[in-house]
Write a protein that binds this DNA or RNA. Structure first.
Lengths: 236, 236
DNA sequence: GAAATAGTGTCTCTGAGACATTATTGG
DNA sequence: CCAATAATGTCTCAGAGACACTATTTC
């Protein structure tokens, strides 16, 4: 049996919105074992018949609970990178997941930290293996889904304002989004029972108070809008 | 090294449009080895450090060329199923790809055949492992992309008519599509250089001849439309 | 009351979709 | 000429997007 096998892991790209900068950040875990012991990398677990997981999804859950100690609001498989070069131990594959966290989530441990996604994708922060690439691909998945689903709302506070939602969408897409369009989308989601107006208000330092909404997803699969928020068709 | 490893494979869900019925069909391969020797299953290859592939994508290419002996027009990774139950040999994973073929492609061998996707998804045709599920998930990926991209055109003949394109889109989506909308989409693709009017005509048995177009993709990534062909928002 | 910010209303534009009209073939 | 089918044009509708205007707070 051994001759037919390969090294496999599940890695998590867990994202949150930095409450101050409104930029996307990714959760990193300080590796306890070689290779790359002590370096910051994506949290993940090895999978095989000897680890406790019966499925890949269970392994992803275990990576979140054991390593990250955070229950994500959203978790989906993005893809699998497998090749002969990514791990010094030989041919290996990583099935990587996108996890979305609320902005109030803290690292809360010496083993964990959040770093800006931009610095990871821009290679200013270099991660071991091909983890820079995995972060980039997971963010691309998020961006493409943010165009036509409510996925960004999983990054907003539990009770959110229109501005919170706008910040989340813009962080995912990487470009500014029309305020009116977003309001109409929220209005539609409210009509369909996906968000609720709590009736309460948030009182900023200045200006009119903001309505507080609550995200009440009706299904595992995200809410789908039938038109996109694509920036513009550039004459490619 | 052996204790940390797992059985991994790449499997291909290769689809074509049946030229007569205009229904989606999936390519099957008669298994040469146990388990499930002699049964019809998805074509695939084992991956590990001893097989000749340096990457998963290379393994997918090898599965197409060695087993299916067909060069697909489009090939993309859909996901990875991994668990303790899907293979009698133990914990295993399959990274599965969606491949799109032209309608003129024939099985051309005793080892290969095409069967209707509907009978696979409906479990009238039972495949080994979890291959029924893999076919279903790949078709769902195709359907969701057909809503807002040109992916169905990879299933149409090289020189296609509007009706060919319509049949392809409808087969992917599983519901009827507005003729005017599709025409406008083709018009837009023509303006952007993604399809070309050959100037030639197809002469059916009766009626006005049909313009013949040619698909001339400008990139690996599909053409993206900014509104969907979703059937209607049902009051969920 | 002024500044600041949130929320509403209105208008335009684009593309989906329904449908009528015109065009081009074979019999 | 008629049947059959393709191609074109017209109108409606919904949602993105721009922007003016109104509302509600703090200082």
């Amino acid at each position: 049996m051994s001759a037919a096998e390969v090294l496999a892991s599940v890695d998590i790209v867990a994202l949150r919105l930095n409450p101050e900068s409104k930029q996307l950040q990714v959760l990193l875990y300080r590796r306890e074992r070689a290779p790359h012991e002590g370096e910051w990398a994506l949290p993940g677990v090895i999978v095989n018949g000897r680890t406790p997981d019966n499925t890949l999804a269970a392994a992803a859950d275990r990576a979140m609970s054991e390593k990250a100690r955070i229950l994500p609001r959203h978790l989906e498989q993005v893809g699998t990178e497998g090749n002969a070069f990514r791990d010094p131990r030989g041919w290996s594959m990583s099935t990587y997941y996108l996890a979305l966290l609320g902005p109030q989530v803290e690292a809360g441990s010496e083993q964990l930290c959040f770093v800006d996604v931009a610095s990871v994708i821009g290679r200013k922060q270099v991660l071991p293996f091909d983890h820079n690439l995995l972060v980039q691909l997971a963010c691309e998945r998020l961006a493409s889904k943010a165009v036509y689903t409510n996925l960004p709302l999983y990054l907003a506070p539990e009770r959110f304002t229109v501005l919170d939602a706008l910040n989340a969408v813009q962080a995912c897409l990487g470009h500014p989004v029309n305020n009116t369009s977003l309001r109409k989308r929220l209005e539609r989601m409210k009509d369909e029972g996906w968000i609720r107006d709590t009736g309460e208000k948030n009182f900023p330092k200045m200006g009119r108070p903001q309505q507080l909404f609550e995200h009440t997803p009706k299904a595992e699969t995200p809410f789908v809008f039938d038109r996109s928020l694509l920036p513009e068709r550039s004459g490619t």
